[in-house]
């Protein structure tokens, strides 16, 4: 205290100058990140919008294409297939991952011994690198002699599926790997939400004679809707962007059976060097993601229950 009072007090600070200093200090904190963010994220984002209406191979003169890229998309068979594959992946991956992660969270949300061990185990696939995960899945599901098919034929299954090597099964194989990998992550979000439900609700329900199913249906599920909403949005966005897993497991094949939109963008841009067209496909991806997110937020009012 004595130090404070002995200090010469600034009685006449130029107010403007102190404002300026404050601003300078604030910007000195933010600039190192902001400069990088502007150059490497924001500007490319804006540029991608322009590029979608351009023709450019990266070497020759860039030229205006107008809507030509988009009309070309309508004739592009690979685009149509990729779009369908992406939608199929989203439609399978989102509900399956959500159901699996909710199931795991409910199982673990009890006083159990070894809870931490189980939580760690379920979560681990999420941090393991996709390349390693994809290669081990491919070997487990190796069509001719892989362990999965060996077990299946031992169980008497005639002609077990050829998994990622078969046009019909490849997408399902990728989805299985994706669910296996992702459910532990979303489980943790569900677990945190489950632990936030006040126990008094269950006690009150027990007094009223509610059974386990009724408690789940009328307390747990409604109380979980904010988490469910959050997970459904995050998971949908992530599923639309799927790339690594597919790229390493199937490379988009066999044929074009698992060729998703991002693989199509990648090939168009970095193999065919059609930067403009790739950007316009990316724009379609962006509009779909934003569109579905907006719809989800619109629907939120109808079913999400905030306390």
């Amino acid at each position: 205290m004595s130090i404070l009072s002995l200090k010469p007090t600034n009685t006449h600070p130029s107010k403007r100058r102190s404002q300026f200093t404050k601003l300078a200090i604030a910007y000195s904190f933010i600039l190192p990140n902001l400069i990088g963010f502007l150059i490497f994220t924001l500007i490319p984002m804006v540029f991608s919008l322009i590029l979608a209406f351009m023709n450019w191979d990266g070497a020759n003169q860039i030229s205006w294409a107008g809507l030509e890229n988009f009309s070309q998309m309508l004739r592009d068979e690979t685009f149509r297939i990729s779009l369908g594959n992406t939608i199929a992946f989203v439609a399978l991956n989102v509900p399956l991952t959500m159901a699996a992660s909710l199931g795991l969270a409910l199982l673990l949300n009890q006083p159990l011994r070894g809870r931490n061990f189980f939580r760690t185990t379920f979560f681990f696939p999420y941090v393991a690198s996709l390349v390693a995960v994809a290669v081990v899945w491919n070997m487990l599901f190796f069509p001719s002699a892989g362990p999965v098919n060996s077990v299946l034929s031992m169980l008497g299954v005639q002609n077990p599926p050829r998994w990622s090597a078969s046009v019909d099964w490849a997408m399902l194989t990728v989805v299985m790997a994706s669910v296996w990998r992702g459910m532990g992550y979303y489980m943790i979000i569900y677990l945190a939400a489950l632990q936030n439900i006040p126990t008094i609700l269950y006690e009150a329900a027990a007094v009223d004679g509610a059974d386990t199913w009724q408690k789940f249906r009328y307390i747990t599920l409604p109380m979980l809707t904010p988490a469910t909403f959050f997970i459904s949005v995050m998971l949908t966005i992530a599923s639309f962007k799927v790339f690594d897993l597919v790229m390493v497991m199937t490379g988009g094949g066999p044929g074009r059976a698992t060729n998703v939109l991002v693989i199509h963008i990648f090939n168009t841009a970095f193999k065919e060097f059609r930067f403009g067209y790739a950007s316009s496909i990316a724009m379609v991806l962006f509009v779909m993601v934003i569109g579905i997110t907006v719809i989800q937020f619109y629907m939120e009012r109808r079913w999400v229950n905030y306390q």
Binding site: F37, I39, F40, T41, L42, I43, P44, M45, F47, S48, L51, G58, I237, F240, K241, F243, V262, I265, F266, A269, F270, F275, A278, S279, A282, M283, L285, F286, V289, I290, T293
Partner: peptide, 18 residues
Amino acid sequence: SIAIPWQVYMVPQFILMR
């Protein structure tokens, strides 16, 4: 910017880096 998929602007980023 977090909500926008990286794949949307990876092409311009690449051009910038080039």
